[in-house]
Amino acid sequence: MADTIVSGMAGRYATALFELATEAGAVDSVKADLDRLAALIAESADLARLVKSPVFSAEEQLTAVSAILESVGITGLAGNFVKLVAQNRRLFALPGMISDFAALVAAQRGETTAQVTVAAPLSDAHFATLKATLAEKTGKDVNLDVTVDPSILGGLIVKLGSRMVDASLKTKLNSIRHAMKEVR
């Protein structure tokens, strides 16, 4: 975990939650609850507005978040954490806290995440091959966060930690276009 750096206010909250969850032996359940909450925030524009907007008072945010947590069954450490964040007027940083918590969990498990951008959805065979290749190169279990972006035309872009490999057709065509301009 020493090589994973989470910083700032979101990192401090995530680290505190991670330490509490580790002591309680509830890291997996807390991560599952936070992942569910992150998915809800991503799906609902109204919930995203509640989380990010400074217009709502701490009491309004706490009341709304408490009702949402209760309705989706997020209780215990994760539920109390989110309520504390709302009470402290830090709800706007919740997505960062969830992301930092996930990074701490991944580091503890020896996992890493690669952001992969492709022009079209990957087949199961291509997904498995890419995952195996990245695992072989890094020596870690690699989770793939795949984004489909048709504007890259073909190929893929892989970001893993501080390294990026851009093998997209769009970049190759731009390189050729640039080289052609220099020849003239």
Results as ranks from 00 to 15, higher is better:
94 L>W: 03
167 A>N: 13
50 L>G: 01
167 A>C: 09
100 D>A: 14
132 A>E: 13
37 L>I: 03
82 V>S: 02
62 L>E: 15
69 L>G: 04
50 L>F: 08
108 Q>C: 08
64 A>T: 11
146 V>I: 08
168 S>W: 02
59 E>I: 14
92 F>I: 11
119 A>G: 03
105 V>R: 07
58 A>S: 15
53 S>L: 06
147 T>F: 03
62 L>A: 14
75 T>D: 13
81 F>T: 07
44 S>T: 01
164 M>C: 09
42 A>P: 00
143 N>A: 14
143 N>K: 12
129 T>P: 10
108 Q>T: 11
57 S>F: 09
68 I>M: 09
66 S>G: 15
136 E>R: 15
93 A>V: 13
39 A>I: 02
63 T>E: 15
73 G>D: 04
111 E>A: 04
148 V>E: 02
102 A>K: 07
52 K>Q: 15
110 G>L: 11
82 V>H: 02
59 E>A: 15
76 G>Y: 01
123 S>N: 04
133 T>M: 12
69 L>R: 04
128 A>N: 06
52 K>R: 15
133 T>L: 13
147 T>Q: 12
133 T>V: 13
70 E>L: 06
42 A>V: 04
141 D>Y: 13
146 V>Y: 01
87 Q>P: 10
61 Q>K: 15
61 Q>C: 14
110 G>K: 10
89 R>D: 14
122 L>Q: 02
158 V>L: 09
141 D>S: 15
37 L>T: 00
38 A>K: 06
145 D>V: 05
155 G>T: 08
83 K>L: 07
115 Q>S: 14
126 H>C: 06
39 A>T: 09
153 L>K: 09
163 R>T: 13
48 A>L: 07
88 N>F: 06
52 K>Y: 14
139 G>P: 07
124 D>S: 13
72 V>M: 05
151 S>L: 00
143 N>S: 13
61 Q>E: 12
152 I>N: 01
104 L>C: 09
87 Q>C: 10
44 S>W: 06
135 A>W: 04
80 N>K: 07
66 S>V: 05
81 F>R: 00
94 L>V: 07
79 G>T: 00
116 V>E: 03
45 A>G: 15
81 F>Q: 01
94 L>S: 02
160 L>E: 04
161 G>H: 06
90 R>W: 06
110 G>H: 10
108 Q>M: 13
121 P>F: 05
140 K>T: 11
73 G>N: 03
76 G>D: 03
94 L>K: 00
78 A>T: 01
123 S>C: 07
145 D>N: 13
140 K>P: 10
115 Q>L: 12
120 A>C: 06
45 A>K: 15
41 I>S: 04
131 K>S: 11
96 G>S: 11
62 L>P: 09
159 K>C: 03
41 I>V: 12
